[in-house]
Simulated assay, not measured.
Amino acid sequence: MRDDKQTQRLEFTSDPGAGRSKYVAAALLGLVVLWMGSGIFFPSAPEEDAEGGSEAAAAVAVQVLPSEAAPVTRRFVAKGQALPHRDSQVRAETSGNVVELLLDNGATVTKGAVIARIDDTQYQKAVAAAQEEFDRAQRELDNARTLRERGTATNDRVIQAEVDLAAAENTLTQAREALDDTAVIAPFDGRLEELPIEVGEFISAGEPAARVVDISPLTVTIQVPQQLRNRLMVGAEAQVAFLTGEATTGTIQFVAAAADPHTRTFLTEIEVANIDGAIPAGVSAEVIIATGEVTAHFISPAILSLDSQGRLGVKTVTEDDHVAFHEITIATAGTDGIWVTGLPDQARIITVGQGFVTEGDLVAPQDTAQ
Rank of each mutant, 00 (worst) to 15 (best):
E149M: 14
E162F: 15
G151T: 05
E149Q: 10
A137P: 00
E177P: 00
D181W: 14
R145I: 10
T171H: 02
A166G: 01
A183M: 06
R145Q: 07
R139M: 12
V163T: 04
A167R: 09
A167M: 09
L141C: 02
D156I: 06
A175Q: 04
T146S: 14
A153F: 08
E177N: 05
N143I: 05
E177A: 12
A167Y: 12
L172V: 03
T173H: 07
A183N: 04
L165I: 04
T182K: 05
E140F: 15
N170S: 13
Q138G: 13
E162N: 08
D180H: 09
E149V: 13
R176A: 02
A168L: 12
D164T: 11
D156L: 09
A178G: 04
T171D: 06
A178W: 09
R145Y: 08
R148G: 01
A153H: 06
E149P: 01
T154F: 15
V158Q: 09
R148K: 13
Q174E: 04
V158L: 08
R157T: 07
A137R: 03
T154C: 13
A183L: 03
N170G: 08
A168E: 02
D181E: 03
E169R: 13
E149A: 15
D156S: 09
R150L: 15
A175E: 10
R145H: 07
R145V: 11
L179W: 05
V163A: 11
T152D: 07
D180W: 10
D156P: 00
D181C: 05
T152M: 10
R157H: 10
D164S: 11
E177Q: 06
R176S: 00
R150S: 10
A144Y: 06
E177K: 07
T146R: 15
Q174G: 02
D181P: 00
